[in-house]
Design a protein around this nucleic acid. Structure first.
Lengths: 353, 353
DNA sequence: TTGAAAGCGATACCAC
DNA sequence: GTGGTATCGCTTTCAA
């Protein structure tokens, strides 16, 4: 149980026989490409300072540095649910990239709650985060207004929201919806339907649009049908069972299930009704699941480029933070990928449609 | 694009015609149970201050508060991989609990890398975190030594590590292994085997022990067999296929697959070999997967009490932070649960064995 | 290359 | 109840 003595910059200065200024210089110096410290300090002195700092176990007090400099070397990330695999994976990447770049990330979940979102933004502001990456939930306008009034550079991911000041890294969901539909059409199906939420999140609405467009293009306009279910799990489960029961009678051949959760409800309904895939219905699902890859046969699914979302949004945020992001650069559009018949763990087969 | 003028406590004080001290009091006051601010300030004055603060858009500068008070209202959480569903779920709970308690959480992933762990600890120290919750990776001794030399209250989760100063919230993995085996024995199986990693992580070793003990107790000592596979995915996949192929010939009836990943390798092997569950083999798996609950029939699996781990570790950490955790309280042991035949989304059926 | 000194914004102590 | 003011540890002029 070591004594908790805090080693400050003054201690180091005293011990090394130099001023605090020098210590500060040395501690903040980056390595030049010549392997020398890039600062206006005598290399010999610098080395001594470094040694003393190490010996004493000095560690910079971030609060003090942040207070004085106004910078905090940290960014905030707000998603709707940090345990959602989709966001979890993005967060993992973000943390990794940021860490290597010397930044700390503060994560939180809005839980789709606009009130919590506001409080989160306030917390982030209080922590002097230099930038924000956010998946805005429904009703995020107040929170976002606050963000922009404070002037924190912000990048939106997953879902869009109006505002010229924001950067955005979004997946082309219209395209994803089209690809899903085209694949099924290409398989020879005509009666293809979709199940979506009543709640109109932009990403889902876009996938619906993509589906509709692809159906139209294929001359299947009359077969377009988008079932809307509740977001609430118990209700959703029941509704989807009824939809499938009815669809089986109507001779529907395939469904697009545009989120992982909806897909799970769907598979549950298949079980409950004793239906078989692909005998009764074929599917194109979204996101990732053990089921997609380990089912026999594997379930075609559309994968969002998670690590790319992380890369691009961090990159864009840094550009915005240093004030050199042109309006053009501020919107990044990514494509998702259709994954077919992947055996588990094998390199997945991608396809374009 | 609002101008970024920072509103400080002084601005509020001036505008409200009071001293900074009063403003500080008001801003830090908690709500008493009578709905009044719990601080030595005239309610009328307090209300005025509150109004002014709101009007001006005042937000506390955490860096300053933290510097002065030494407290930071934040805790650090280090797991091996924040995207691993097991940890992701724990993190989600922790963030939620902490947020409601007025604490901010800083998450990071050690990526099983002791060097990164050290740097993470340093970062956390720099941020003045008041406490730490950590799933230590192999080789964590240096990092943990640093933690305890700084005297940050620390709670270990998932994996144990020596050190009286640490709190620990661990799952009884010996019990989990026993329960898995007993369940299969109770189903009437005798030839029950287990597949584990060569790499000896404590949690897995404990599960192996539990399995062995249960087999012994049931007089099946001669049937105990623990196959050790590589951690590396490609190798593991191949090895497990061979194990199953051979096991089918030897008349093995059931397997315990003590992690989700091993379970996935196992299901893949079943697919590859054209085997059927439960016709050819029965299983007890671990952790959570869509497959366990949506497979027909559902796969019995052992679930760790994730939200309980989060609850208990936060609770313990707070106790340690306020200096009132007795040595007894500093070790919390939790039991995992066997989940049977749960239909998707329904309340799972738990069982004791 | 080096150092002295002025704050950053809040808290905490002490007086009134 | 209220107010003055000395810090907290660091960065950042500015001078030497």
């Amino acid at each position: 149980m070591g004594v908790i003595k805090k080693v400050t910059i003054r201690d180091v200065a005293r011990e090394a026989g130099v001023s605090v200024t020098l210590v500060s210089f040395v501690m903040n110096a980056k390595m030049g490409k010549d392997g020398r410290l890039d600062c206006p300090v005598n290399p010999v002195t610098a080395e001594r300072v470094l040694q003393v700092a190490k010996r004493l176990g000095y560690r910079r007090n971030n609060a003090a540095a942040s207070l004085r400099s106004g910078r905090s070397n940290s960014i905030g990330v707000i998603v709707s649910d940090i345990a959602n695999p989709f966001f979890a994976e993005i967060c993992r990447h973000l943390e990794k990239i940021a860490f290597e770049d010397g930044y700390t990330v503060i994560f939180s979940s809005s839980e789709e709650n606009p009130q919590k979102l506001i409080r989160l933004v306030d917390t982030m502001v209080g922590y002097n985060v230099e930038g924000l990456i956010m998946a805005p939930c429904l009703g995020a306008e107040t929170a976002l207004a606050r963000v922009s009034s404070v002037g924190i550079p912000t990048v939106l991911i997953d879902r869009d929201f109006p505002g010229d000041e924001f950067g955005r890294v979004l997946v082309d969901n219209v395209d994803a919806g089209k690809v899903a539909a085209r694949y099924l059409i290409h398989q020879g199906f005509g009666k293809i339907e979709m199940i979506s939420y009543k709640m109109g999140v932009t990403s889902l609405v876009d996938r619906e649009d993509g589906y509709s467009k692809a159906m139209e293009e294929a001359g299947l306009k009359d077969d377009i049908k988008i079932h809307k279910i509740s977001y609430e799990a118990d209700a959703a489960k029941k509704e989807i069972i009824e939809i499938f029961r009815d669809a089986a009678k109507r001779g529907v051949e395939a469904f697009i299930l545009p989120t992982k959760k909806i897909a799970m409800y769907g598979f549950n309904a298949m079980n409950v009704l004793g239906l078989n895939m692909p005998k009764d219905f074929s599917f194109v699902c979204f996101d990732e699941s053990d089921l997609y890859v380990l089912n026999k046969p594997a379930v075609p699914h559309i994968l969002q480029p998670l690590s790319e979302i992380a890369d691009k949004s961090y990159e864009l945020l840094q550009k915005m933070m240093s004030g050199k992001a042109s309006d053009e650069e501020k919107t990044v559009a990514l494509k998702s990928k259709l994954v077919l018949g992947s055996r588990f763990g094998a390199e997945p087969t991608e396809a374009s449609f």
